[in-house]
Design a protein around this nucleic acid. Sequence first.
DNA 1: AACGCAATAATTGTATACAATATGGTTGAC
DNA 2: GTCAACCATATTGTATACAATTATTGCGTT
Lengths: 223, 223
Amino acid sequence: MTLRRADFIRESLEQMIVTGALANGERLDETALSERFGCSRTPLREAFQALAASGLIELLPHRGAFVRHPSLTQMVEMFEVMAELEAFCGRLAARRVTSEDLVRLHETVLACEEAVRANDHDCYYHENERFHHLLYRASGNSFLADQASRLHARLKPFRRLQLRVRGRLEQSLAEHRVILEALENGSADETAAALRDHVAVQGGKFNDLMASYNASPLSAQQA
Amino acid sequence: MTLRRADFIRESLEQMIVTGALANGERLDETALSERFGCSRTPLREAFQALAASGLIELLPHRGAFVRHPSLTQMVEMFEVMAELEAFCGRLAARRVTSEDLVRLHETVLACEEAVRANDHDCYYHENERFHHLLYRASGNSFLADQASRLHARLKPFRRLQLRVRGRLEQSLAEHRVILEALENGSADETAAALRDHVAVQGGKFNDLMASYNASPLSAQQA
DNA sequence: AACGCAATAATTGTATACAATATGGTTGAC
DNA sequence: GTCAACCATATTGTATACAATTATTGCGTT
């Protein structure tokens, strides 16, 4: 039971940052936040350390904690890395995937199909998460899986925006099917390529992303 | 000027962990360490947060901080990811590298040659670091460069052990030459492949690594 | 003798008090 | 009138005191 006050605060602040409730460049006032959370500055400062480590805020000595939303450039850079990490997961998984993994992956694809039919974006979103995390684990490299999961989590708000684009659900589902088929065939190159294309921000997707970025509350001026 | 006590402590503890001065599974006593560093528990706890974020220690609620050295399996996993990250850096750099970057890379290769002639392992080690960091930056993706640098830093103690193996210096230098040549030719595939081979733990290198791992102070029993 | 429970001790988590540093405004000189 | 230096204020960094939780040890029971 991890009932540490600091952990709760970290998660809360993380939510507030990624949802845009806290604007970019905003300074996190320790006193104000401690009153808001009904605690002292101590657990807040511990939460700050963790947030700074994951890059969500910047900690300037004797000056305070500042929210750092990724710029459009940084976001594209992160997606570029994410695409490569996922491709590598797929490459390894093509050799190492177990039959149980494949069963679970098939389940998520079926669930995704159901979600598309029902036009249930939230459901699709969650099954999509499950598909990707299963894939990370199927790589057989737990360190890689952790790294991929972390970056995946950081890109979460932007992915959510992307899925709002009309027709993206169906396209995403079709790509999942291609990935899974390549995986079952055990062809590493095809799996990797399919995942890279699935994740990478390129062509029309870039314009969609840029549009949603500009429309999102995260788009406040950069430092 | 970042003269925070907590930052100094973090670096100190980091050193103590990676050098093996702190054994695996060892519990970090807040009171004992605060006396040793001549400070209170507060900056120590902040340092713990940062160390936990980079995976060097594990923070169990109400139980304390425990040193977590990577197991041989985890180490191999990390090298597997490192190889892929560097390969990707090379792939991008092959398209994006500037002439200034190439000049600097040539300088490090020359310095490495000098170090090999003088049989100066420390000098070679530092120039090797410089070569790789230049490459990360040359990828033109600063997020990727950061991620690569972080993992590179975490693998530092093990790489140092590897370079001790007889003949490894000359082989490493030769590989640097191949990488740089591929980079100058602008051939992404060759650069990526050369870097993957350079970093990957495979064949005889695996045995060398395993031997040095078992001989190192980090090899204490896993949790 | 072994197991379980309870009280005690030790350690972590949090609050508060104090010290050090940066920021902003005011005053003075040029 | 502008710039620079200095002081006042606010905020961060650290120390210490207190609360909450866990580990340990001893005792009693089976």
